[in-house]
Simulated scan of single mutants.
Amino acid sequence: MPPFGPHYGFGLYVHWPYCARICPYCDFNVYAAKDRETGPLVEAILQDIQAHKARLHDHPPLTSIFLGGGTPSLLTVQDLEAIIQTATDQFGLEPNGEITLEANPNDVLRSNPGDWQKAGINRVSLGLQSLDDAALTFLGRDHDVTNALRAVEAVQAVFDNHSLDLIYARPGQAISDWQSELSQVLALGAPHLSLYELTIEERTAFGKRAARGELIPMQDDDQADLYELTQTLCEAAELPAYEVSNHARAPEYESRHNHIYWANGDWIGVGPGAHGRLTIDETRYATEAARRPTDYIAATSPTNTALPTLDAARELLAMGLRPATGLDLTRLSRLGYEQPDQSLLTDLEENGIITQAGSSIALTAQGRLLADAVAKQLAASMDL
C-alpha cells in the first residue's frame, strides 16, 4: 500500500472563483463577481464531479466536501444543494462526513444560515479576518466589526461546528493590540480558529505596494512574538493548536478536510484553477483545472500529471509535519528514501524543536514556529 492515497482520507474541494471584492492580500484564483452569469459555471462543476467518478470507481465514500474560493457563500442555496447532491450521488459520503462552506460576514447577513444547513452544509468557516475596523479597511474587506459580530451570532445560532478565520502580523500591529483583538475573538466561544500571519505575495496588490516601498511587512522576530502570544492565549482558552495555524476545542472540531491534505490523502479539485491529488493504481497524480472560468466551462477535464516520487516525498514530509500528531517516517521509507540522520533528529529533539516516539516525529510548539525550516533540514538530510 502506498504512503499516500484515499486510505488517508478522500475529499472534494470545490473552488468558486468569484468575489464581491478582491482583497489586496489574496493570491488565489479569483475574479470580480459583478454581472456574472453563474449558471454555466455551476453546470460545468457538476459535470466535472461526474467525470471524476469514471476515473475513481474504486475510491471509497468521501470523507469531506469543502466549498472554498473565492466566495462560495455567494452561491444560491439551490446551487449549493446541487453541488452537494451531485457529489454524494456519485461518491457517497461517510457517516458524519464534513461539508464546509467558506462564508463572508455580509453574505451571512444577506442569507439564511438555516437554509445552508438544509442544503447539506454542516460546518461554516467564517472569514472575519479582524475585529478592528481600521484593519478591515486596510485588508480590503467589505464588512465592519458590527456586521462581523452579527454574522458570528447568526452562524452560531445554527452551526455548532464552525470556525473563525483571522489575519494577524499586519504591518505596524502592536503586540498589545493583537492581545486585545484575539481575546475578543476567543470570548466569542467558537470551537475552531484559523489564525494566519499576513503573507505578502508578489502578485497581489499588497505585493506591488511592498515593491514600491509603500508597505513594509512585519519583521520576522516581531511575527514570532505574535505567534508565541497566539499560542499562549489559545492554550489558556482551551483551544490548543492541532496544526501550525489551526486551533480546536476538541478533536471533533478539527477540520477533517484539512487533515486529508496534511495526511497526503486523495482529493478531487473542481472549479477554475482547482488543484487535486489522486492515487490510481498506486501512482500519485497532480491535477489542475483550467484557471479562467470560460476555459473551465469549455473543457472541464483537468490536466493530470504523474507526480515524480521525489515530489511526492517532499510533499509528504512538508505536509506531514504540520499537524501536532506528526509524521511516521517509515512512510518515506516506503517511497525508497532513507530515514533522516539520527544525529539531526537527536539535535532537534534536544533543542526542543521535535519530539520522537518510535518512528514518528512531531513538532513542538517552538518547532511549529520553524516548520518550514525544519522540513528543509530533514529533506536535505534525506537527499530530497
Results as ranks from 00 to 15, higher is better:
107 D>P: 02
289 A>N: 14
336 G>I: 02
221 D>P: 07
110 R>E: 13
108 V>G: 04
161 N>F: 04
327 L>F: 05
31 Y>E: 03
151 A>I: 08
207 G>Y: 10
25 Y>E: 06
209 R>Q: 15
223 Q>I: 12
216 I>L: 11
10 F>H: 01
132 D>N: 15
304 N>S: 14
311 D>A: 12
368 R>F: 09
205 A>W: 06
45 I>S: 04
118 K>T: 15
267 W>N: 00
93 L>E: 07
65 I>D: 06
149 L>Q: 13
92 G>M: 10
300 T>Q: 13
349 E>G: 07
38 T>W: 12
90 Q>R: 12
19 C>Y: 07
345 L>M: 11
140 G>W: 01
384 L>C: 11
262 W>E: 00
258 N>W: 06
362 A>C: 08
255 S>N: 00
118 K>F: 07
118 K>M: 11
195 L>Y: 07
232 T>A: 15
260 I>Y: 02
259 H>A: 15
323 P>C: 04
313 A>G: 04
89 D>Q: 15
38 T>M: 08
81 E>A: 11
225 D>Y: 06
87 A>R: 05
15 H>Q: 13
170 R>K: 14
328 D>Y: 05
232 T>H: 14
353 I>F: 14
179 Q>N: 14
100 T>C: 08
120 G>D: 08
188 L>A: 02
138 F>Y: 08
175 I>P: 01
269 G>S: 04
26 C>M: 07
206 F>H: 06
218 M>V: 03
245 S>H: 09
263 A>G: 00
310 L>I: 09
85 Q>P: 03
236 A>M: 05
58 D>C: 05
331 R>F: 07
117 Q>W: 10
184 Q>L: 11
83 I>A: 01
203 R>L: 11
53 K>F: 15
34 K>H: 15
85 Q>T: 14
299 A>E: 15
23 C>D: 10
251 P>E: 06
355 T>W: 01
8 Y>C: 01
357 A>S: 14
6 P>N: 00
365 A>V: 13
306 A>W: 10
355 T>K: 05
361 I>Q: 06
136 L>E: 02
195 L>F: 01
374 V>K: 05
107 D>I: 00
282 E>S: 13
157 A>W: 03
13 Y>K: 05
113 P>K: 04
76 T>G: 13
101 L>W: 06
43 E>C: 09
75 L>Y: 02
113 P>S: 04
275 H>Q: 03
28 F>Q: 04
67 L>G: 01
373 A>E: 15
10 F>Q: 01
151 A>G: 07
103 A>F: 05
358 G>W: 00
197 E>P: 08
262 W>A: 03
97 G>P: 00
381 S>I: 09
127 G>D: 08
339 Q>E: 12
272 P>G: 05
373 A>H: 14
80 L>R: 01
118 K>P: 00
266 D>P: 00
365 A>G: 11
344 L>H: 09
33 A>D: 10
109 L>K: 04
263 A>I: 05
131 L>I: 13
189 G>V: 04
320 G>K: 04
60 P>C: 08
88 T>K: 10
292 R>A: 14
247 H>L: 12
42 V>T: 14
201 E>N: 10
263 A>M: 04
98 E>H: 07
145 V>I: 09
245 S>K: 10
30 V>G: 03
245 S>T: 11
153 E>V: 10
82 A>S: 15
285 Y>D: 05
22 I>Q: 11
80 L>D: 08
309 T>C: 09
158 V>F: 02
